[in-house]
Amino acid sequence: MGIDFIIAAIITVVGLTTPILLAGLGELVVEKSGVLNLGVEGMMLVGAISGFAVTVYTFNPWFGVLGAAAGGALASLLFAVLVLQLNSNQVATGLALTIFGTGISSLMGLSFTGRIVMPFASVFPDALAKHEYLRLIFGYSPIVYFALIMVPLTTWFLKSTRAGLILRAVGENDLSAHSIGYSVIKVRYAAIAFGGAMAGIGGCYFSMVITPMWAEKMTAGRGWIALALVVFAGWRTGRLLTGAYFFGILMALELYAKASGFSFLPSQFWAAMPYAMTVVALSFISSRGTAGANAPACLGKPFLPST
């Protein structure tokens, strides 16, 4: 078991982690603005088929990624209009979005089953991307680097920019943000669209990178893991990154343990871990009270200005 083995294992973990990291980052921003969008799985599927379809037509994976972002964002806007304009219940609307996204993606995908595209692999020269050791750094799809760059960018945006401050203020106390003169609705629209776009890109990682093809329900529940991840991370971007890799390592560990002949714990134990640990983490975060927690106070509640 040499360095080569470890590098290959890390590459598998990166593959498992990237989609949930992307979708999780998007959802984190959405939740920070005070909105709970449970439609992540649906948006990921729409992103997966949109990205694939655009790549098939344009032969250009970069356009594909843009298409996936647009698809995810469009799907999320459906949610946004209902939730923001018409004050519908966020939980029910999010679930409806997942049902809708699952249905519409399979309808859109009918004419794409059985087709393939070139995998959106590393853009670095083979000397780097396929190098025995350097592939650890250069061997990934551009989407992986994009996800990693988005982590500090999102952190910076939320912590250090005026817009980020406003977004957090809206999520913390929408009524007072409104009374100071910020447009709660506009901020949330932007956040939701960002969340949709990120979920869409996360989705296209499946259809364009891991397995460059389209298959119905190919995200296989990763959207729900992304939702858990946001909570597990306590709404902090840094922890979201470590959390995503932690979940990714858990998923890989299950496979490695089983493939090596170990079965000291049933595989269901591994599969349940991300969710169970999220509940535990959530309890820790919440028990410290709102002061210590990063949970947006307005999460999931409708914005109802009195005037």
């Binding site: 590459i11 598998t12 498992l16 298959a215 190919m218 296989a220 493939a259």
Partner: peptide
């Protein structure tokens, strides 16, 4: 049927 898991398992 779980394409991402099938892919990761193959890599493993």
């Amino acid at each position: 049927f779980d394409p991402p898991k099938e892919a990761a398992a193959t890599e493993t």
